[in-house]
Simulated assay, not measured.
Amino acid sequence: MIPLDILGTYFVACLILAIAPGPDNIFVLTQSALQGRKAGLLVVMGLCTGLLFHTSAVALGVAVIFKTSALAFTLLKVAGAAYLLYLAWGAFRSGAMTIEGTGNPVLKNGQLYRRGIFMNITNPKVSIFFLAFLPQFASPARGSLALQMLELGFVFILSAILVFGAIALAAGSLGEWLNRSASVQRWINRLAGTVFVGLAIKLLLTER
């Protein structure tokens, strides 16, 4: 069991890291603004489910593959970039939606949730980050390192839910107002597409 004082320091660090601008923040922001709070929260849950994969990978030592194998890193990186470009293509092709009340998401709940999972799992930097960050707060003297990694991973997920959820709620409120204008909505779709392209390029240029 990790002492509470260490967990407290770790939790604050996690919050700061979650707040810092990055692909996940932007992804939640754009999806929430385009499709509403519910859509954004579903994406958040998908992203955090993806974090379970990375947490388990680090706990089991699988993430070492992505740190030592250039081929595995490159394949996952290309898969993630391809998916981002697919999202960009869809955003550029999207027209204005008819919004009633608080708005209905274009994608079904399951699609939004899976989109968040795929976005997170195909980012190899997350596994490498977990591999580098989590062990700093663990110690063999406190027992099983695998269990400590799981504990730290769940705390990180909690911080991500808090921060990303707040982003989704705030952006969703703005999106409900913006989506009432067809021209503004098309502009947001194009902006989202541009963001996805930028994230794909950034991911492709990422080195181990």
Rank of each mutant, 00 (worst) to 15 (best):
E207K: 10
L51N: 08
S139A: 15
V12G: 01
Y83A: 05
L71P: 00
A166H: 15
S32N: 12
I65G: 00
S69P: 07
K125R: 11
M45L: 14
W89Q: 10
A81G: 14
E151S: 09
S183H: 14
T9F: 12
L4P: 01
L17E: 04
I161K: 01
S159Y: 06
T74S: 13
F156V: 11
R37N: 15
A88Q: 03
A57D: 00
L76Y: 04
N123M: 11
W89L: 12
A20H: 03
P21N: 12
L150R: 07
L112H: 11
I19G: 02
K67A: 08
D24S: 14
I65D: 01
V195G: 00
T206V: 01
L17P: 02
G165D: 06
L7R: 10
C14K: 03
L29D: 01
L51R: 06
I65L: 11
L204H: 10
G110D: 04
L169A: 08
A88C: 10
L52N: 10
M149T: 07
L17N: 10
N120S: 11
W89Y: 14
H54R: 09
A18V: 04
G36K: 05
G103K: 01
K202R: 15
L71F: 11
Q136H: 10
I99L: 14
T102H: 14
G46M: 02
L85G: 05
L7G: 10
G80V: 09
L191W: 04
A182H: 11
A57G: 12
G198T: 08
F27Y: 12
M149K: 01
A146Q: 04
L29C: 09
F27N: 05
R180V: 09
L51W: 03
A13P: 03
M45R: 07
G153E: 02
T74P: 00
I117C: 06
P124S: 07
C14P: 04
W187L: 10
R180I: 11
A132L: 08
I188R: 03
K202F: 04
T55A: 07
S94N: 12
K108Q: 06
P23R: 00
G116F: 01
R115E: 10
A70S: 13
L134K: 00
L204P: 03
Q111H: 14
I65F: 07
L203M: 11
A63T: 15
M1C: 05
N123Q: 07
L112E: 11
L84E: 04
V106T: 09
F118V: 12
L29F: 08
M149L: 13
P124V: 05
G165Y: 01
G193D: 07
F156Y: 11
I16S: 15
A138W: 00
A72Y: 09
S144Q: 01
L162Q: 09
K125V: 14
V106R: 12
S56T: 09
L169N: 02
L174Y: 07
L87N: 08
G101P: 07
L4R: 02
F129H: 08
R190I: 00
N104R: 14
R93T: 13
W177V: 10
G198L: 06
Q136M: 13
F118W: 15
A168T: 04
A70V: 15
N120D: 10
A18W: 03
